[in-house]
Simulated assay, not measured.
Amino acid sequence: MLRTRLLWFSIGFTVSAAAVSHFVWKDLWVDRHALSADMKQKFDALETRVLNLESVPHQNSISDQSVL
């Protein structure tokens, strides 16, 4: 009788631990992909801004000061 209870307790504990670990792993996996996508979006926006700045012709700041 005691062995049967111990067996069922062990099985229940193992199944519960597996379910909890599955949900925690899934949550961490989703967070990782969300962070990766967010960082990619931000770096793409940064790269676009840098390319826009590089395409602007450089103006000499000394000539701008002499006009004033």
Rank of each mutant, 00 (worst) to 15 (best):
M39T: 09
L6Y: 04
L51A: 15
A45T: 04
R3G: 05
T48V: 03
Q59T: 04
L7T: 12
H58D: 04
Q41A: 14
K40T: 11
L6H: 09
F9R: 13
Q59M: 03
D44L: 05
H33D: 12
S61E: 10
S36R: 13
L53W: 08
D31M: 11
R3Q: 14
L7Q: 15
L7I: 15
G12N: 01
K26F: 06
F23Y: 10
V30I: 06
T4H: 10
P57H: 03
P57T: 03
F23P: 01
H22Y: 08
H58K: 11
S55W: 00
A19E: 08
T14S: 12
D27K: 06
R3F: 04
D64T: 12
A34M: 07
L6S: 12
G12Q: 01
K26C: 03
W8V: 10
L53G: 11
L35P: 01
K40F: 09
W29C: 06
L68N: 07
Q65A: 15
V56D: 12
D44P: 02
H22A: 11
W29H: 08
I11K: 01
H22T: 14
S66C: 03
F9W: 13
V15H: 02
R49L: 06
F13P: 00
V24T: 03
K42M: 04
V50A: 04
E47V: 03
F9L: 11
L28N: 11
I11S: 00
W25Y: 12
I62D: 13
D64M: 09
F9P: 00
A45R: 12
S10Y: 01
D31T: 07
S21T: 10
V67A: 05
S16T: 07
A34P: 02
I11L: 15
S55I: 00
D27I: 00
W29R: 10
R5M: 13
M39L: 15
D27E: 09
H22D: 09
F9Q: 14
E54I: 08
K42Y: 05
T14R: 00
H22G: 05
L51S: 07
N60L: 04
F13C: 11
L6G: 10
L46D: 05
S66M: 11
R49D: 13
E54R: 06
D64E: 14
A34G: 01
N60K: 02
A37Q: 06
L2S: 09
T4R: 14
A18R: 03
F43C: 02
A17H: 09
L46G: 09
V15A: 15
W8N: 11
Q65C: 04
M39I: 10
V67W: 02
R5S: 15
V50P: 03
V56N: 10
S36T: 14
V50Q: 01
S16C: 12
W8P: 00
T48E: 14
S55H: 07
S55A: 11
I62P: 00
Q41L: 12
E54W: 05
D64A: 13
R49I: 04
V20K: 02
H58P: 02
S36W: 05
R3K: 09
T48I: 06
S63R: 04
M39N: 10
F43A: 03
L7N: 13
A17Y: 01
D31K: 15
D38V: 02
L53K: 04
V30Q: 08
D38S: 10
H22S: 13
A37T: 07
A18L: 15
M1D: 10
